[in-house]
Simulated scan of single mutants.
Amino acid sequence: MKSAVVVFPGLNRDRDMIAAIEKIGGTPPAIVWHKDAELPDVDLIVIPGGFSYGDALRPGAIAARSPIMDVIRERAERGVKVLGVCNGFQILTEAGMLPGVLMRNASLRFVCREIKLKVANANTAFSNRYADGQIIRCPIAHHDGNYFADAETLQSIEDNGQVVFRYAEGTNPNGSLNDIAGITNAAGNVLGLMPHPENLIEPEHGGEDGRGIFAGLLT
């Protein structure tokens, strides 16, 4: 499977993401700069985490208006898979590609630790290497991961099975409604995820719990 990683100024997890994709998929991804107006022909587009534009205005707000986002939106509408992790999730919501918003953590503090995730929907391209209800470990590192949506939107994504991952066993680090950690669009080909699965893919990381997300996409 061919993939591309989109890089914005201020991101700091792009190298981790590139390494994870190459280790699991066997092929390095194409690297695309945010001001580019073209994307290679790929099956997966990844927006990694960090602090694009220093989180000016709101996290992801400026990046969501970069030229490459129009291309990503068009590819997603054609069914190409898109994965946004942490700041990538924020960018996807700011771009209108995913419902809801990511607000300041309820503690108003940056959190960086390991949490537990429950697989809420294993019937997606991003989660099919796991079982429904499976609990996995995953690192987090964010200041604005508090997922919020109005009552109607929240009910819709719950009814449609768009919630793919939830914080589990009392480890919700940010106050997200319904313990939401990751959601898809209605079509199921765009996933936004706050935790960082790319940082738990091999024994040297302390475990391989995050590997399944990439394995389902790349192998």
Rank of each mutant, 00 (worst) to 15 (best):
M1V: 11
M1Q: 08
M1R: 13
V6N: 02
V7T: 08
V7Y: 02
F8N: 05
P9Y: 06
N12F: 13
R15V: 14
M17D: 12
A20W: 00
A20Q: 00
E22D: 09
K23S: 13
I24H: 00
G25D: 03
G25F: 00
G26C: 10
P29Y: 06
A30H: 14
H34W: 15
D36A: 13
D41C: 08
D43L: 08
D43T: 09
V46P: 00
V46Y: 01
V46C: 08
I47Q: 02
Y53D: 00
Y53S: 02
G54T: 03
R58K: 15
P59G: 10
A61Y: 12
A61W: 04
A61K: 11
A63F: 01
R65T: 12
S66P: 04
S66C: 15
I68T: 05
M69C: 01
V71S: 14
R73L: 07
A76S: 11
R78Q: 14
R78S: 11
G79L: 12
G79D: 10
G84T: 08
F89M: 14
F89E: 10
Q90T: 12
Q90A: 14
I91F: 08
A95C: 07
M97W: 10
G100C: 11
V101P: 02
N105T: 04
A106R: 10
S107N: 14
S107A: 11
F110G: 08
C112Q: 12
C112N: 11
R113G: 10
I115W: 05
I115G: 07
L117N: 09
L117Y: 06
K118E: 15
K118L: 15
K118M: 11
N121Q: 11
N121G: 13
T124I: 06
S127H: 05
S127C: 07
Y130I: 05
Y130Q: 06
G133H: 12
I135G: 04
I136R: 02
R137F: 07
C138Q: 02
A141I: 05
H143T: 12
H143D: 04
N146F: 13
A149S: 14
A149E: 10
D150S: 14
A151W: 13
A151L: 12
T153N: 09
Q155G: 13
Q155M: 10
D159V: 09
N160R: 15
V164S: 11
F165P: 10
F165V: 12
R166L: 07
Y167G: 07
Y167S: 11
A168L: 06
A168V: 04
E169A: 11
T171V: 05
G175C: 06
N178P: 02
I180D: 01
T184P: 07
G188R: 03
N189T: 11
N189D: 09
V190F: 01
L191A: 03
G192Y: 02
G192P: 03
M194T: 05
M194V: 08
H196E: 11
P197R: 00
L200W: 00
E202Y: 10
E204P: 01
G206R: 08
G207W: 03
R211W: 00
R211H: 00
I213R: 01
A215H: 02
G216I: 02
G216C: 05
T219A: 08
